[in-house]
Simulated scan of single mutants.
Amino acid sequence: MDNKNRQDNRDRNKVDSNDPSEVEYLHRQHKQYSHEQIVDAIKKYGPYREDIEKHLQSGKM
C-alpha cells in the first residue's frame, strides 16, 4: 500500500489497487474500462503506472 504520509515522489509511479482514488484516476484516463478491469490490470501488470497505462492504451487486456 502506498504511504500517503511520504511527500517525496517515490510513490507517484506506483498505483495501489486498494486505493479507490488511484483506481478512479486511472478509470478517468481510460473510460473504456470498468473499475474492476482497472483493478485487474493493476494486479496483472504490477503496480507501476507506466506498465499499467501501456497495456490499457494498447487495448490488450
Rank of each mutant, 00 (worst) to 15 (best):
M1H: 12
M1D: 09
M1E: 09
D2M: 08
D2S: 13
N3M: 03
N3Q: 06
K4Q: 08
K4E: 06
N5G: 15
N5M: 07
N5T: 12
N5K: 09
N5S: 09
N5D: 07
R6G: 05
R6D: 08
Q7G: 07
Q7M: 05
D8G: 04
D8V: 05
D8L: 00
D8Q: 00
N9H: 11
N9G: 14
N9I: 15
N9W: 11
R10K: 07
R10N: 07
D11W: 05
D11C: 07
D11K: 01
D11E: 08
D11S: 05
R12C: 10
R12K: 15
R12Q: 09
K14W: 11
K14R: 13
V15C: 05
V15Y: 01
V15H: 02
V15L: 13
D16E: 05
D16F: 01
S17E: 10
S17C: 15
S17P: 12
S17Q: 15
S17F: 14
N18W: 14
D19Y: 14
D19N: 14
D19E: 11
P20H: 06
P20E: 05
S21A: 12
E22I: 02
E22T: 04
E22D: 06
E22G: 04
V23C: 02
E24M: 09
E24P: 11
Y25T: 08
L26G: 00
H27M: 04
H27V: 01
H27N: 08
H27K: 07
H27F: 05
R28A: 13
Q29P: 14
Q29H: 12
H30F: 12
H30C: 03
K31H: 06
Q32T: 05
Q32L: 11
Q32M: 07
Y33N: 05
Y33D: 05
Y33P: 02
S34E: 00
S34M: 02
S34Q: 02
H35Y: 14
H35L: 11
H35V: 12
E36F: 15
E36A: 14
E36K: 14
Q37C: 03
Q37A: 08
I38V: 06
I38D: 02
V39M: 09
V39E: 14
V39R: 09
D40Q: 09
D40L: 11
A41W: 00
A41I: 01
I42L: 07
I42P: 10
I42W: 04
I42S: 06
I42V: 13
K43H: 08
K43E: 11
K43Q: 11
K44S: 07
K44R: 10
K44M: 03
Y45P: 07
Y45F: 02
Y45M: 04
G46P: 00
G46N: 02
G46K: 04
G46S: 01
G46E: 03
P47A: 07
P47K: 15
Y48N: 12
Y48I: 11
Y48C: 08
Y48R: 13
Y48M: 12
Y48G: 06
R49N: 04
R49T: 01
R49G: 01
E50T: 10
D51E: 08
I52L: 01
E53W: 04
E53R: 06
K54M: 06
K54P: 02
K54A: 12
H55N: 07
H55Q: 08
L56H: 04
L56E: 01
L56R: 00
Q57A: 12
Q57F: 15
Q57M: 15
S58C: 03
S58K: 07
S58R: 03
S58G: 04
G59E: 03
K60Y: 15
K60R: 09
M61L: 11
M61A: 08
M61K: 12
M61Y: 13
